[in-house]
């Protein structure tokens, strides 16, 4: 294949990935819709599947017998499995798009030289982390928000940010850039998945408090609150050292080579630091009585907001003012 072939393949792969994400999303919607339609026919005591999966003990509320139709449960599960399988396909396509994007430039290079590629790489990180961490933490119930996120982000990337493949500006030639961005992408992916857990925690908490948890509905079928809180902590704990490495080791080393100062208080650096501090605060909050749970979840989301702002906001609002700006 020629360079141009790779570039064209990349564009097609992004499109196919988007389509498969849409299908995965539909499968997950069907999964939850089927779940809600469970009819109250039989009363059997079945262990709460999600709670068992995340390794938590069932909460009193969920240990209570719930009307379950086994056929229906099977159908729900089948749709969930279809959704997951489709997501695997989509993430593979997404990864292929990223790789060929790099091969589609002459000379070959890492595929993160501009906002389009950055968005492609970042959303790939989210999908990848969802699948990898999902194996360990059983995150299939997160398929709905994750696939929705991917669909929206890839669409925005294609519509608003697309630029044809081309070489990097010389300041970006460095393997430290590869390490720096790869680590940042992985950490952001973990934080994104963690943020989803935090959002679901808050929403479920609120619904539970207002008594509007519909039996069998999406929220009801999520892991219980404690498990969500703990899961969110573990996801963030996974991402935090990687982020520390990306933002405070690989980034400064690259800056030292590229600009002669390992830390320049450049807007991008400032916001990476802010993100780091907020997530450090989150970890502290979880260890402080009275902050665990809701307050901690809010802090985690503030952290994610600063991450997003760094990713999107800096490039758009600060433009050329930042040495890190790839927007042009």
């Amino acid at each position: 294949m020629t360079t141009a072939d790779f570039a064209a393949f990349s564009n097609n792969a992004v499109m196919f990935a988007s389509i498969v994400y849409v299908l995965a999303f539909v499968a997950h919607v069907t999964e939850w819709a089927t779940g809600r339609a469970v009819t109250v026919t039989e009363v059997t005591e079945v262990a709460e599947p999600e709670a068992a999966l995340v390794g938590g003990s069932p909460s009193p509320a969920q240990a209570a017998p719930r009307p379950v139709d086994e056929d229906h449960e099977e159908r729900v599960d089948k749709w969930g499995r279809i959704g997951l399988a489709l997501t695997v396909v989509a993430v593979l396509l997404h990864g292929a798009a990223l790789v060929t994007r790099g091969l589609g430039a002459d000379p070959i290079r890492v595929p993160w030289g501009n906002m389009y590629e950055f968005t492609l790489a970042g959303s790939f990180g989210v999908g990848l982390m969802y699948l990898l961490l999902g194996r360990r933490y059983h995150l299939r119930w997160m398929g709905l928000p994750v696939t929705a996120f991917e669909v929206v982000v890839l669409m925005l990337a294609g519509l608003l940010l697309y630029v044809p493949a081309g070489p990097l500006v010389p300041a970006l030639h460095s393997y430290w850039l590869v390490i720096h961005v790869a680590a940042a992408v992985v950490a952001s992916g973990a934080f994104a998945v963690g943020a989803i857990a935090a959002v679901l925690f808050l929403v479920k908490d609120r619904a539970g408090r207002r008594g509007s948890l519909r039996p069998g509905g999406y929220l009801d079928r999520l892991p219980e609150l404690n498990a969500l809180d703990r899961l969110s902590y573990r996801l963030h704990a996974f991402g935090f050292p990687i982020w520390t490495f990306a933002a405070l080791v690989a980034g400064p080393i690259w800056a030292e080579y590229a600009w002669g100062r390992y830390w320049n208080w450049d807007p991008k650096e400032v916001w990476a630091f802010i993100t780091w501090v907020v997530y450090a605060a989150y970890l502290h909050a979880r260890a402080t009585a009275g902050w665990r749970g809701k307050a901690a979840a809010v802090i985690a989301l503030v952290g994610f907001a600063t991450l997003l702002f760094n990713f999107v906001g800096i490039n758009f609002f600060f433009g050329g003012g930042s040495l890190h700006s790839y927007a042009g």
Binding site: P267, V270, I274, A281, H284, I314
Partner: peptide
């Protein structure tokens, strides 16, 4: 620990203006 938490937040907040207002250095 609570003071540490508040100080961490203050540090994050205090870093913001430097990314908005141009810096002499």
């Amino acid at each position: 620990m609570r003071t540490a938490l508040v100080l961490l937040f203050l540090l994050a907040l205090a870093a913001v203006p430097g990314s908005v207002v141009p810096q002499r250095d």
